[in-house]
Structures are given as C-alpha cells and as structure tokens.
C-alpha cells in the first residue's frame, strides 16, 4: 500500500515539475516587451472603459498616450483635467486644459406638450423607430422615448422620466463620455460646457421645421422666431434652419433670451429665482415649471 502511495506522490510531483519547466521556457520564449509606463498611465486613468476618449478601453488609451507626441485631441472626459495633468507629468508632456462638459437633452416634447398621434408597436429600440418613421408623435426631430441613450450610459447618470417620456441627465454623475450622444439616432443630446453650479441655458429643441408646422405637433418647439437672437448681446445665439442654437462657449448666462422665448423652448436650470420685478415681466409659462422640476430631479 505504501509503495503505491509513494509512487503516486513521486509521479505526480514529477509531472508538476515538468509542466512548470515547460511553462517557464514558453513564457521566456514568447515574452513581449511592453513599455512599463503603459501600466502606470493605466493606473492613473479611471478604468471606466467607457470609450469616451474615442478608444476601446483605458489600457488602449494608455498605450495611445504613451506613444503620442503631444496630447492634442487626446482627452479623458471621465478623469478630466486632473487625470490628464497627472498622465502628462508622468510622461513628461504637456496637457491641454479642456473645459469640463456635461450632456443635455435638447427635447422637451413630453406627453403633455407633444401629443401622441399613433401607437408604435415594434421592437423597443430608438434606431429602429427612427429608421421607420417620425415616431409616435408627428415631430420628425424629437425624442422617440425608448431610452437607447439610457441603456448606453455606463455611469447611471441617466434615467427615463415616466411622466414626460424623456430622458433625464443627472449632472453630478455625468462625465460627458459621449456614449448617449452617439446612441441617440436623432442627435438630440449635446455635450455642452459645464458652467459653475451646473447652470445651464440651452434651446431644448432641435426641430428644423418651419414654425407654423412645428407648432402643430409640439407646444414647446423652437419656431425660429429669432426673438432670442435679437436680444442676445454676446452673439451666442446662432439661427439656422428655423432653429436657434446657443453656443455654450459664448453664452454669459444672462438669461435674457429665456424670457423672450414665446414657446418656452429655452431652458434655464440651476439658477436662483429671479427678482420679483423680472418675474412679473416674464410670461408665466411652463418653461419655469420645467426648469424647477428638473432642479428637483437633480
């Protein structure tokens, strides 16, 4: 009995030894040299693997950073300037300061403002609807409310508001990786400059139809009336295809345009309440309600 036991132990140990030797030599032979800095840079990166930098993953981005001559056009939106500065210091290069950004949803066509005119019955996917027709409202530009953007978000920074049928972005969690921007088949979501206290003024509409037509199917559409354009002192508003667009780089957050808008398509978010005098001048409209609602959601 003993001899059997001994034989087993010896033979198994020998087998193990041989296997270990084979593994060792193979590992030696096929060793690939890797720049040790890649590992270090990868440690600095937030390892969210979100693809926001334009590369498949953090390791891939680290490789690119190590190889790159300059950091132009290279930016990690999740880590922001801080991480980029660290990586630059490690690699002896210079990081470019980039203004932090945040995603905004440019559609306010809630169930209330934009009546449903038909019933979509098919696979629940925004792109499928977009490729088929205008969607269950008559607006060919607006949100189709199936939440592909929410599914695309890796940071749980978005959710669908069941009452409005529109996606909501949680500013604190949004890292501006751009996944939702890419997911949206109608390009409704935009990355805008992040202002202090997350204050935002933007045209919450991308409808390019003529005003009269657009108003038929949505109460809060931008009609392209150019009132905001005329009132803006900083040339921040661009009129194009019956649509106003506020350039977040130029906007000084003066809020003059917000009260001008006849359809409340311009939203102001996270601002302190206006002084009473202005408020009486402003039309008591739903735009205010929406903005306060959004604040409470945030």
């Amino acid at each position: 009995m003993n001899s059997v036991l001994l034989f087993t132990i010896i033979s198994l140990s020998l087998l193990g030894l041989i296997a270990a030797l084979i593994l060792y030599f193979i590992a030696q032979k096929f060793k690939v040299y890797e720049d040790p800095r890649i590992d270090k840079v990868e440690d600095i990166l937030p390892s969210a693997n979100c693809g926001g930098c334009g590369f498949p993953g953090c390791r891939n981005f680290a490789e690119v950073l190590v190889k790159a001559d300059t950091f132009d056009d290279l930016f990690c939106p999740v880590g922001g300037n801080e991480v980029m500065a660290q990586a630059a210091a490690l690699l002896g290069k210079e990081a470019i300061e980039v203004d932090p950004k945040v995603a905004v949803v440019r559609c306010s066509g809630s169930f209330e403002h934009r009546p449903r005119t038909n019933f979509y019955d098919g696979a629940s996917n925004c792109t499928i609807v977009h490729n088929l027709y205008t969607g269950d409202t008559d607006c060919p530009f607006g949100c189709v409310s199936l939440g592909e953007c929410v599914d695309a978000c890796d940071f749980e920074a978005m959710y669908m508001d069941e009452k409005t049928g529109l996606p909501v972005i949680i500013d604190e969690k949004c890292v501006a990786c751009g996944a939702c921007v890419e997911a949206c088949p109608r390009d409704i979501i935009e990355l805008r400059k992040r202002n202090k206290k997350d204050r935002k003024i933007f045209v919450s509409c991308i409808n390019e139809d003529k005003g009269g037509i657009a108003k038929q199917y949505c109460a809060v559409t931008c009609t392209g009336c150019t009132k905001c354009f005329k009132v803006c002192e900083y040339d921040a508003i661009i009129m194009n295809n019956n649509l106003a667009f506020i350039d977040s780089e130029k906007c000084k957050l003066c809020r003059k345009c917000v009260t001008e808008c006849p359809t409340n398509a311009i939203h102001e978010i996270n601002f302190p309440p206006r002084r009473i005098k202005i408020e009486t001048e402003a039309k008591p409209g739903e735009g205010e309600q929406i903005s306060t609602k959004k604040v409470s959601n945030n």
Binding site: T117, N118, F119, Y120, D121, L132, Y133, D136
Partner: peptide, 9 residues
Amino acid sequence: NKLITVSPS
C-alpha cells in the same frame, strides 16, 4: 376611434 398602430413589417 383609437390611435392607429405603426410597426415594422
């Protein structure tokens, strides 16, 4: 009387 249905073929 109700909304018409639209779906892919």
